[in-house]
Nucleic acid binder design. Structure first.
Lengths: 264, 264
DNA sequence: TATAAAGTTTATTAATATTAAACTACTATT
DNA sequence: AATAGTAGTTTAATATTAATAAACTTTATA
């Protein structure tokens, strides 16, 4: 189904991304961490170096990220960065008002991605950093807020395959989820009631582009007990997130050129 | 010798880098340009998308660069950018004084890379933009200026395999080249007398790091006829490049941490 | 709505990536 | 300085896998 040698190659690049690769990584270390045989890994790395994505230092033999990879940011930045920059003050505002963790999310194909986030400022805080939410469209407020406003075709593609059960509250039944999405569409916002992480409650609002398609979402995560113990707290969060989502949506009123990105 | 599926994968990413991929690229376009069969390309692209390096828009089915690729720049930037920024005014100075094209080069393993460049301001100018000089260590002033000051072991690795003959003047004989490198080491600078491009004469000076190893080089390219018709012109260029190379080298006096990068 | 074009899936087979083993180069230790 | 040990490289055999064609599905077009 997937091409193994490509998979290994990209896992290797991931490893460079996620470890301290600034001082180089040895063949042995790559093999140890990723479970490769040294000869196969050597063939692979030679090819990657040939193409300039990595390079091998002549003396130490260690591998480094090649400058070619830097060029990608120049091409990608153009669009996404201006949106993130535009959104930043509004994300900050939610963080200021609530003190809770705030996430700006979007999607690429069927993958949920985090564009930026702010940590909670509270002593008791939800600490989930840049969690890997690749397959958590169905279990997060960020994900559901976007999902609910997509075409049925897009929803189907994103949800195909079994829905991972992250907690006891995760909705893994398709028809249940379908009802949930309808409710979200009606209410205009999504919640995550311990569906992704136990003890964490999130509120998410969609951000629409100039064609009224969901392009991104903002969410605020707080400890569940705060929500249950103080009814007004949820209202406060909802109002703050809703306001920011609307403001961020104004980005598309002026700047966005038709057909630039997401057509889903 | 090299792994084909990896090679194709990275060629595909290159294609995204070098074409206008902002509006997405279709499977057909990828196949047409790179000579792939659609089924094989589809398998490949699915795998790349799985890993988040590309993504496929749900509606248009076109492929886009994934935000994961953007993250690499954040990791790579730390070192290289500050050097390039430091060097910029000195590159600019050569360009101001001579009006000719100026290149700041470095190397990754055995590959010569261009860190930055300035175009000629003259009406008759050497127009070679970001030429692909991957395998031109032996044929450029930038390359030879660094090569001459490397260890014999490093020289050997870089020069192994046949030396490509770019012009009639390209030195493709190893012992001839060895003499040339000795001369460069003695003189302190390299020239490229139509060895890479006909009609183009270049002067290159090495830039040394805090361990007196060649880390980068600056070069200035001008039309050959200017050099031959005016003896003083070459002196002017040499002085300017020499000065800037020395100044850029001062970068390592303060900022560089030991073992950060190149150990060659 | 029909036709064409593009994208996806499948099962087969031809090609290639993986492997172990031999080899080389480098490090550390006595 | 010699040796043992470690890491990296190369090779050639073969077992796996990627490429293929063909069937199929979806999307676009006229």
């Amino acid at each position: 189904m997937s091409v193994k040698s490509i998979s290994k190659t990209l896992d290797t690049l991931d490893y460079f991304l996620n470890s301290n690769s600034i001082k180089g990584i040895s063949l042995k270390e790559i093999c140890d961490h990723l479970g490769f045989k040294k000869s196969a890994a050597h063939h692979m790395l030679s090819t990657i170096c040939d193409k300039g994505y990595l390079y091998q230092d002549l003396k130490s033999k260690k591998y480094f990220l090649g400058s070619k990879l830097k060029k990608f940011s120049e091409v990608i930045d153009l669009n996404a960065n201006s949106f993130i920059n535009f959104a930043e003050p509004f994300i900050k505002k939610i963080n200021d008002v609530t003190g809770e963790a705030v996430h700006l999310a979007s999607f690429e194909g069927t993958r949920l991605i985090t564009l930026s986030m702010l940590e909670s400022t509270h002593p008791v805080r939800v600490d989930h950093g840049f969690l890997n939410k690749d397959n958590a469209f169905h279990a997060t407020a960020s994900g559901k807020a976007m999902l609910a406003f997509m075409s049925e075709a897009s929803q189907k593609k994103i949800l195909k395959g079994k829905l991972e059960k992250f907690t006891n509250h995760t909705i893994i039944n398709l028809s249940q989820l379908s009802n949930e999405l309808k409710r979200i569409k009606k209410n205009g916002f999504a919640t995550d009631d311990e569906e992704f992480q136990p003890g964490v409650y999130c509120v998410g609002y969609p951000i629409f582009d100039d064609e009224q398609k969901p392009f991104a979402s903002v969410s605020c995560s707080s400890p569940k007990f705060k929500i249950t113990s103080d009814k007004k707290y949820l209202e406060k969060i909802k109002n703050s997130v809703k306001f920011s989502a609307l403001e961020i949506g104004k980005y598309f009123k002026k700047t966005r050129k038709k057909g630039d990105k997401h057509a889903a």
